[in-house]
Simulated scan of single mutants.
Amino acid sequence: MTARTAGLCAGRVVAVTGAGRGLGRAHALAFAAEGARVVVNDLGVGADGDPAAAGGPGSPAREVVDAIAAAGGEAVAHGGDIATAEGAASLVTTALDAFGRFDTLVNNAGFLRDRMLVNLDEDDWDAVVRVHLKGHFLPLRHAAAHWRAEAKAGRPPAARVINTSSGAGLLGSVGQSNYAAAKAGIVALTLVAAAELGRYGIQVNALAPAARTRMTERTFAATMAAPADGSFDAMAPANVSPLVVWLGSAASDGVTGRVFEAEAGRITVMEGWRPGPTEDRGARRSPAEAGDTVRRLLADAEEAGQVYGAS
């Protein structure tokens, strides 16, 4: 079997950002195993975004490309910064130049700079929001522009975008206000993009994964360690990738604007903000009356989900 002629994603070209390690690496390998040709993006930075060598021999992206090639697949490395317009645009052109088409974008790149809110520097806020939120927006924008042009030229794509949110973005996480805010923004971006881009054959979904990566192993070391006895590794990044591959394939036709959680062997469809208890009196309330109304409504409302790390 060759990666080009067999599998769920045979013939498709996929770009995965932050694909040198962790979840991104697992996604890239899984797409290649299902027949996709893969653009492996990674800057080669540390878990907190510190610069390191990127794109050359021995880089994380190059190592993934070599692993895909060794398994009979096709891949190219991309070392651009996807949180810049130039880097995001070159991600798309790299796919087109190398493989002649572009079908699926997996936005995955990110890093952490955790601090309690009162200790969080402005630079740490800006850096995390930049790589997560802007680093989703720019590749999505450039990919969507390409696919819209294809659709207008009479070549409607079966395009797919999978964005990476987090449980922190859905419920919040103590000590991660910058990360949680960015990941919540990614969910909103996903919903808007799905609504705007569906007419061009573009489907956009988001994933909130739980797995052992450089970003989680320090925080959850005790619960995320690989089992020593060789049993099922519930926190292996590869457990998340099958859902990502399916969402990135043509087989996911009709699934868009959705948010999923994936962990170990579990997949959950997340249901976001929906109207709960409500009361309309048809007139303005005093502050005290507004408070009385809120108390009555909260008595009938579901309990709010607990923020990760809250005591």
Rank of each mutant, 00 (worst) to 15 (best):
M1L: 12
T2K: 15
T5E: 15
G7W: 13
A15F: 06
V16E: 01
G22F: 09
L23W: 02
L23Q: 11
L23T: 06
R25Q: 07
R25F: 08
A26K: 09
H27Q: 14
A28S: 14
A30I: 08
G35V: 09
A36G: 12
V39G: 01
V40Q: 08
D48K: 13
D50S: 15
P51N: 11
A54Q: 04
A54P: 12
G56N: 08
A61S: 13
A69K: 00
A71T: 00
V76D: 06
D81H: 12
T84R: 11
S90Q: 15
R101I: 06
V106K: 09
N107H: 05
N107W: 11
N108I: 07
N108D: 03
G110F: 01
L117K: 05
V118C: 04
V118E: 05
D124N: 01
V128P: 04
V128K: 02
V129Q: 14
V129A: 11
L133H: 01
H136V: 12
F137D: 07
L140H: 05
A144T: 07
A144S: 13
H146V: 04
H146R: 08
E150L: 14
A159H: 06
V161K: 04
T164Q: 06
T164F: 08
V174R: 04
N178W: 10
Y179P: 03
A180S: 14
K183E: 10
G185I: 05
I186T: 03
I186P: 10
I186M: 02
L191G: 05
A193F: 12
Y200P: 08
N205S: 05
N205R: 01
A208N: 00
A210Y: 09
A211K: 02
R212L: 02
T213Q: 02
T216R: 05
E217L: 14
T219C: 00
A222F: 06
T223M: 13
M224E: 01
A226Y: 00
S231I: 09
F232Y: 15
A236P: 09
A238P: 10
N239V: 10
N239Y: 01
P242M: 01
L243Q: 11
V244T: 03
G248D: 06
G248R: 01
S252I: 04
S252L: 08
G254M: 06
G254L: 07
V255I: 11
G257M: 01
R258N: 09
F260W: 11
E263G: 14
A264T: 03
R266P: 04
G272K: 02
P275N: 00
T278R: 13
E279S: 14
D280A: 03
R284D: 15
D292I: 03
R296N: 04
L298E: 06
A299M: 13
A299T: 14
A301G: 09
G305F: 13
G305H: 14
Q306E: 14
Y308P: 00
